[in-house]
Simulated assay, not measured.
Amino acid sequence: MSLLPDVIAKNKRVSQLVLYEYPINERIRSLMRLEYLFKRLFAFISGTSPMHQHVALSLLFEIMDTCDRAEVRSGILQDIDKQKVNLESYRHHPNIDLNALDAAVADLSRVSAALMGKGRIGQAARENEWLMSLKNRFAVPGGTSQIDIPSYHAWQLSADENRQRAIKEWVEPFMPLFDGVSVVLKMLRESGSPIDASTQEGGVFQEMLGGKIYQMVRVWVSDERLIYPEISANKYVVWVRFSELDAQYKTQLITTPTVFKMSFCNV
């Protein structure tokens, strides 16, 4: 008896869905950028190599610049307060787990209280004069070489545990911001339910919003091909079309119908 069919079945690749997200307003765009920077920061901060830590520092400095705008913190606090009100509205509904509700409200209150602290976000790290002088050198191409800032070169030669401890101390003041960003985006993403969709002949999907207000569009597409969505939206309509990277990495617009999943999110 031939085992070939079984081998083929075992080796057959199961396609996965790749997620793309599109913010519909600038505030959510800023939060998603911060989330992106934090994820990269956490990926590099665990490394012991000075090269990993160099990238981690550059990401920390980007976070500093991104969160300097006052509306970042105030917008997060407003969203958290809004969600607390929404949760409290379920308190007298039947079949509600009050312990779980209380825990959720308490967690939101904890994140809000930590983010509401006095001073600028990450003030403790900003008060480190050497760190801030290093931040200025990062803005210059090649400006962190030993000829420009020998103290940084000496720091990179220090013990691994000392460098890791220092970076974690510098990142710690920004963790309330990360917690706030994570909570708001988690609530936003969970507010939408995926639906099946498809582009039409010509390669365009269009959805009229009918007066509904959304803050994020999420699109899932198969990873069987190197295709990606181009999403645009305003308060009236959402458009989605797909393009593909060919073998020469040139963009080709897909004009045949493409099936995908999507969700509209708002809190």
Results as ranks from 00 to 15, higher is better:
residue 1 M to Q: 13
residue 2 S to W: 08
residue 8 I to Y: 03
residue 9 A to Q: 14
residue 10 K to H: 11
residue 11 N to G: 07
residue 11 N to C: 07
residue 16 Q to W: 00
residue 17 L to W: 04
residue 18 V to T: 10
residue 18 V to K: 15
residue 23 P to C: 01
residue 23 P to A: 03
residue 26 E to F: 08
residue 30 S to P: 02
residue 32 M to C: 02
residue 42 F to K: 02
residue 43 A to Y: 06
residue 45 I to N: 05
residue 46 S to C: 09
residue 48 T to H: 07
residue 49 S to G: 10
residue 50 P to F: 03
residue 50 P to G: 04
residue 50 P to E: 02
residue 52 H to D: 13
residue 58 S to A: 10
residue 60 L to M: 14
residue 62 E to V: 06
residue 72 V to F: 00
residue 76 I to R: 01
residue 78 Q to A: 15
residue 79 D to W: 02
residue 81 D to L: 13
residue 88 E to V: 13
residue 88 E to D: 10
residue 88 E to G: 12
residue 88 E to N: 13
residue 91 R to W: 06
residue 91 R to F: 05
residue 91 R to P: 12
residue 93 H to G: 10
residue 93 H to D: 09
residue 95 N to P: 00
residue 96 I to L: 05
residue 102 D to I: 09
residue 104 A to G: 08
residue 105 V to C: 07
residue 106 A to K: 15
residue 107 D to Q: 12
residue 109 S to D: 14
residue 111 V to I: 15
residue 112 S to E: 05
residue 117 G to H: 08
residue 120 R to T: 14
residue 121 I to K: 00
residue 125 A to M: 05
residue 127 E to W: 11
residue 127 E to D: 12
residue 131 L to D: 08
residue 135 K to H: 07
residue 138 F to V: 05
residue 142 G to D: 04
residue 142 G to S: 06
residue 142 G to K: 09
residue 145 S to M: 09
residue 149 I to V: 15
residue 150 P to V: 11
residue 154 A to F: 07
residue 154 A to D: 12
residue 156 Q to L: 11
residue 158 S to W: 01
residue 163 R to V: 11
residue 166 A to Y: 08
residue 167 I to C: 07
residue 167 I to K: 01
residue 167 I to W: 07
residue 168 K to N: 15
residue 170 W to D: 09
residue 171 V to F: 00
residue 174 F to G: 05
residue 175 M to Q: 09
residue 175 M to S: 03
residue 176 P to W: 09
residue 178 F to K: 13
residue 180 G to I: 09
residue 181 V to L: 01
residue 184 V to R: 00
residue 187 M to A: 14
residue 187 M to D: 15
residue 189 R to F: 03
residue 189 R to L: 08
residue 192 G to Q: 01
residue 192 G to S: 04
residue 197 A to E: 02
residue 197 A to S: 09
residue 197 A to T: 07
residue 204 V to A: 05
residue 204 V to I: 11
residue 206 Q to G: 11
residue 211 G to A: 02
residue 211 G to R: 01
residue 213 I to K: 10
residue 215 Q to M: 05
residue 216 M to C: 03
residue 216 M to Q: 10
residue 216 M to I: 04
residue 218 R to N: 08
residue 220 W to G: 05
residue 223 D to A: 06
residue 225 R to E: 14
residue 225 R to K: 15
residue 226 L to G: 12
residue 231 I to Q: 00
residue 231 I to M: 02
residue 232 S to V: 12
residue 234 N to W: 00
residue 236 Y to H: 11
residue 236 Y to I: 11
residue 237 V to G: 00
residue 240 V to W: 06
residue 242 F to P: 12
residue 244 E to I: 04
residue 244 E to K: 08
residue 246 D to F: 03
residue 248 Q to P: 11
residue 248 Q to F: 08
residue 250 K to F: 12
residue 250 K to G: 15
residue 251 T to G: 05
residue 255 T to A: 10
residue 259 V to T: 13
residue 259 V to C: 13
residue 259 V to E: 13
residue 264 F to N: 00
residue 264 F to T: 01
residue 265 C to L: 01
residue 265 C to G: 00
residue 266 N to T: 14
residue 267 V to L: 13
